[in-house]
């Protein structure tokens, strides 16, 4: 439920876009020998933090361009979008406002706790 600012088209409804997972994951060069572990990490392992996250999106029902963004996964807010060949912004430039929406405990979710 967001407006996403496509770096090529401008602000558009989220329903026009598709998510492409973590950004800035480099594909290992196929011409070099690499171990199972390193390759396996590229194929299978992605970060999934609560808070600020570099993420890839594609404007599927629009210009079909891929781009990167910084999204706060705890609020779903997209803080900045930028083209693939642009430098990634420093996360310190943004404050991850809320770690725990609505006063949830830091771990898990739920309501206010009531002291017995």
């Amino acid at each position: 439920m967001l407006i996403i600012n496509c770096p090529y088209c401008g602000p558009r409804d989220q329903s026009e876009f598709s998510n492409g997972g973590e950004a800035h994951v480099k594909r290992p060069d196929g011409s070099k020998e690499i171990g199972d572990r390193e390759w396996g990490e590229y194929v299978f392992i992605r970060a999934n933090p609560k808070g600020l996250f570099y993420e890839r999106w594609v404007h599927t029902h629009g210009c079909r361009k891929w781009f990167n963004c910084v999204r706060d996964t705890s609020t779903d807010e997209i803080l900045v979008t930028y083209k693939l060949d642009e430098k990634k912004p420093n996360l310190n430039n943004f404050k991850s406002v809320v770690k725990t929406p609505s006063g949830e405990p830091e771990v898990g979710s739920g309501n206010f706790t009531v002291e017995k």
Binding site: P28, D29, G30, S31, I34, D36, W39, G40, V43
Partner: peptide, 13 residues
């Protein structure tokens, strides 16, 4: 071929 999609995975254990 040096590389193609999924090439390295074909020799994973």
């Amino acid at each position: 071929k040096k590389d193609f999609l999924g090439k390295r995975s074909l020799t994973r254990s």
